[in-house]
């Protein structure tokens, strides 16, 4: 079971990494915004899998913070996207 969960965590990490590489190479900033959101979700999944695999429940709290801060970063993105600064 443990190695399955770890394998799943590794698999998710790989897909996230693949997506990150592509996203961050695109010029559009909107695409970049997706990167952080992706990591909020994917990172959360990885941490949850690690928490169960290593039987360390406090890791779940890290996932909780990641989930909380993922949207926070996105709000900061949107606020700092072009078209905002002139109107303040």
């Amino acid at each position: 079971m443990i190695s399955f969960l770890l394998g799943a965590a590794g698999f998710v990490l790989m897909t996230v990494a693949l997506a990150l590489v592509v996203i961050l190479r695109r010029p559009a900033e909107v695409d970049h915004m997706m990167a952080a959101q992706l990591l909020g979700t994917g990172g959360g999944a990885i941490l949850l899998l690690l928490a169960t695999a290593t039987e360390t429940p406090p890791i779940v709290d890290v996932a909780l913070l990641l989930a909380l801060f993922a949207s926070f970063a996105a709000v900061a993105f949107v606020r700092s996207a072009p078209g905002q600064e002139s109107e303040v």
């Binding site: 979700t41 779940v60 996932a63 909780l64 989930a67 949207s71 996105a74 709000v75």
Partner: peptide, 16 residues
């Protein structure tokens, strides 16, 4: 955690 991600995902998508 899942609910949180659901919520923020939905809203962030809207914003983006």
């Amino acid at each position: 955690i899942w609910l949180l991600v659901q919520l923020s995902g939905a809203i962030v998508t809207q914003l983006i």
